[in-house]
Amino acid sequence: MLLAPALAIYTLFAIWPLIDVFILSFQDWNGINENREWVGLRNYYHILYNDPVFWVAFRNTVIWTIMSVIFPPVLGLFLALGLNQNLIGRAPLRAIYYLPVIIAPIAVATMWRWMYDPFFGLFTQLLTNAGLAQLIPDWLGDKDVALYSIFVAYVWQSVGFSMVLFLAGLQSVDRSLIDAARIDGANRRKIFEHVTLPALRPTITIVLVLSTISSLKAFDIVYGMTGGGPAQSTQMLALWAFTQSMEIFNYGRGSAVSVVLLTITLAIVVPYMSWSQRREEDAQ
């Protein structure tokens, strides 16, 4: 049947691992042994009470998520508003802003790691030339700075994505309303507040939810830039789950971390999906 191949592959390779991660989180397993031992809630107890890295990762994931819900969408909205005007060269400008989105995150990590190089990197050179050499931090080596250094690279990569979604949303703004408002003497700010912004509301929700989801997944860029270091200061939940399972071979604890992250994600995704379903039905 037409549906069968997609459904079979999807169920086996996407849904089964999802179920298995729950099962594993209640087990003790090193990945090799024949039998997996049931240990009840012990993995959860361990990560919540005896694993300091878990809480660092948790804190970083929260900080990262909050920052990525604010910075890329706001910047993306400004760019979209600007590029929605009839400007010379707006097509190439859009292309430039979107370019980083298609670069592999691992390549972005490699690029920025080199730009953050403490001796010959771009930022060090620029600050030295500006006579600010004493202000140069160890971008990726200082544990108070590293997370934010990575985040700058992430903003560079992800702004284009928000921008494109906002540009699409702006197409649905009713032009006759804007014209009418202008005839009535409304200035740009008024038009934005009372016409554009309300019309963009669904787009804003979509951008915020997608930004949240993609920020919870932050993996490649952190793995590539610091691997969670220095001293676990840039550890994130997704990466910590991976490290526990695939590098320390403690599948139970890794899966427990995964389940925590999954629960957070579902708490955002489920309301969002029912919201968009209702919206779809209203539109029909």
């Binding site: 789950a241 399972s245 999954l262």
Partner: peptide, 11 residues
């Protein structure tokens, strides 16, 4: 909507 990064080990 589900991040596959969460399921790397079971995968």
């Amino acid at each position: 909507m589900i991040p596959f990064q969460v399921m790397l080990a079971p995968l």
